[in-house]
Amino acid sequence: MLHVLIDIVPFGEEVHRKNILELRISNDLSSPSPRLGNYRIKASDDRGHEVEYEVRGFERDKGAHMLAMLCLEAYERNRCK
């Protein structure tokens, strides 16, 4: 599982750090190929929005950072549904 936290730190003051988005990205193990991954994402933000969605067919060799970016883009598309 990847756990992505996005925090805001107003004026760089750590005492005011606040989490504004959390993604939990889990491999759902349904991919028939070791090269591709299917992932379930649970996202929640500081406004109480919670969404669950999937990213399918991700090429694992692109790396965790690319998966996280793809999941953030998918979050943006899915949060308003």
Rank of each mutant, 00 (worst) to 15 (best):
A43N: 01
D46L: 10
E59D: 12
A43L: 09
A43W: 07
E13M: 07
V4F: 15
M69T: 07
V4H: 12
A74S: 13
Y75S: 05
S31M: 07
V15P: 04
E22K: 14
V55F: 02
G37M: 09
E76D: 15
N27W: 10
E22Q: 15
R60F: 04
Y39K: 01
L5K: 14
I20G: 02
E54R: 10
M66F: 12
D28K: 06
N19P: 03
M1G: 09
D28S: 10
A64V: 13
E52P: 03
E22M: 06
D7Q: 13
P32C: 02
H49K: 15
F11P: 00
I25N: 05
L21Y: 04
I41W: 05
G63L: 08
D7L: 11
L2R: 08
L2T: 06
N38K: 08
N27P: 01
K81V: 14
L67E: 08
N27A: 02
Y75V: 05
Y53V: 00
R79H: 04
N78V: 00
E14M: 09
V4G: 01
V4Y: 14
L29Y: 10
L36R: 10
D45M: 00
R77C: 00
N78T: 01
A43M: 09
I8T: 15
A43R: 08
L70C: 11
E14K: 13
M1V: 06
V4C: 13
N19W: 01
E50C: 02
S26H: 14
I41S: 04
L21S: 03
A74T: 13
L2I: 14
E22V: 12
M66D: 12
L21A: 09
I41P: 06
E14F: 10
M69I: 02
L70M: 12
F58A: 12
S30I: 04
H49M: 13
M66H: 11
R40K: 14
R77N: 11
Y53G: 06
Y75A: 03
E13A: 02
V9C: 05
G57R: 06
H49I: 15
S26F: 10
G57K: 04
L29H: 15
E73T: 06
H16Y: 14
S26W: 07
I25Q: 09
V51A: 14
L72V: 05
